[in-house]
Design a protein around this nucleic acid. Structure first.
Lengths: 247, 247
DNA sequence: CGGCTAGTTGATGGGTATCAATAATTGTGG
DNA sequence: CCACAATTATTGATACCCATCAACTAGCCG
């Protein structure tokens, strides 16, 4: 195991957090509010309201429900998933504050279901008020286009992760994704607090909680990170992690 | 093996071809031209031109190229893919006549690469002429939004296929997808002509050509279809195929 | 502090990637 | 139009990864 890159965690950390490994979008790029000028933001706020979900694992909407709203996360984490046959499910994405969701099929029904991973506050914009606004406001529509573009690229990145790599490398990709969202850089490494359970990670990566555990175990054995607690990881060799995820 | 559903291929065929298995978009839904009124279509044609690619495996653009055009397929099949390390690649999607492509990253570069699977004729719309058109034409922009929505849902479907199923079931999903695009219903079953090689199928499903072969072999053994030639399959038990892909 | 859920670790069988060899198909030039 | 070469597809054998089942441990919340 070569250790020529164990030396400088801070710059590697910056490399990951600032610019992303490949084409990972910077955090905040997809925030609808951030990209709007004053009056547009005000108009948007006028038709929206904020719901509070006090707990994890609360349903926001189900696949097949009639789509009435577009949602935007103010705080907390949301998971988008599809249920397959009873108990089997695939987590399509984890969403963070600023992200928008509510993908609608041609039939006007939600394609996926959405639920909270943690407690959350979520903006809700009724479609019947949003739609005329979009038609009158090409700039707002354009922002939505950009946002969906981001989602599409994110989906393609996951296709690559799922199609190409074995579980160990998938896990590395996932952790980098998480670090880009939620890591705090510290003098002795990068601290990552995972908001979701092993179960969620497994369903996101198309594997099982057991295999996720074993992957983390192996990373610890190989000196990439340490498990402070099940949900808190401290990375000591980020370049090693990057090397694992390198596609 | 129950054979209660071997009886009525025609209606099963219709079920697949017309409405799709789950939320598979109907063929043609994503055609930009089809959704536009006369003058819009004319304006679009005015700024576009048509390129002819006489052979398979010709590069249209590479990932990292500066993005200058949006493309739309007039005839032929195109594959969108990402190269990982030298020889390894992931096929993200196969595109058909009417489909649009040219996904652009925030940096103005193409995110993926595009190449022909068969000979093809392809519309090319320069972005510097298309962009002002879009800003002035909310309806056109809206159609683009709908189109990207389709792509996103397609990507999510593939995530589910890749994350959940074993290769045999993935292959079934893939074949249904192909049937929806390219099948011709005949009295004694449904004939499917595959435009792409085993290699492409493998890279699309995250597996190997050998495993694809074995999957086809098994389907033949289980009476789902027969291989007329490597590229031509005749399905005799579509409901069996559907059962395999049932998510 | 006790019950409970979430997480970890261990053993085993099945699926599939890999390597290798053969067969079929396509393309090319005589 | 045929024959040969080159490519593509198929089939076989083997090793390895990982899902599954099971047992145990560690956090967590009342």
């Amino acid at each position: 195991m070569d250790s020529k890159s164990d030396a400088a965690p801070p710059e590697i950390a910056r490399q990951i957090v600032v610019s992303g490994a490949s084409d990972v979008p910077r955090v905040g790029d997809t925030r609808l509010h951030d990209m709007l000028s004053g009056p547009e933001r005000k108009a948007l706020n006028a038709i929206g309201s904020v719901d509070t979900y006090p707990n994890a694992d609360m349903t926001i909407f189900r696949e097949g429900d009639r789509a009435r709203n577009l949602y935007a996360i103010a705080s907390g984490i949301v998971r988008i998933c599809r249920h397959l046959d009873g108990l089997d499910r695939q987590v399509l994405s984890f969403l963070w504050p600023g992200d928008i969701f509510g993908l609608i099929g041609d039939d006007g029904l939600y394609v996926n279901c959405a639920s909270t991973v943690s407690a959350a506050r979520i903006h809700r914009f009724p479609l019947n008020r949003l739609e005329p606004m979009l038609l009158r406001n090409p700039r707002l529509q354009c922002h939505l286009l950009i946002k969906i573009n981001h989602d599409l690229r994110a989906a393609q990145r996951q296709i690559i992760t799922l199609g190409h790599a074995d579980t160990y490398h998938r896990l590395a990709s996932f952790l980098i994704e998480m670090i880009q969202h939620a890591a705090s850089s510290e003098p002795d490494g990068v601290r990552l607090r995972l908001p979701m359970a092993r179960n969620d990670i497994a369903d996101y990566l198309g594997t099982t909680p057991e295999t996720v555990s074993r992957g983390l175990q192996r990373m610890e054995r190989e000196g990439i990170m340490r498990r402070i607690s099940p949900r808190v990881l401290k990375f000591e060799d980020l370049s090693g992690l990057l090397r694992l995820a390198r596609r």
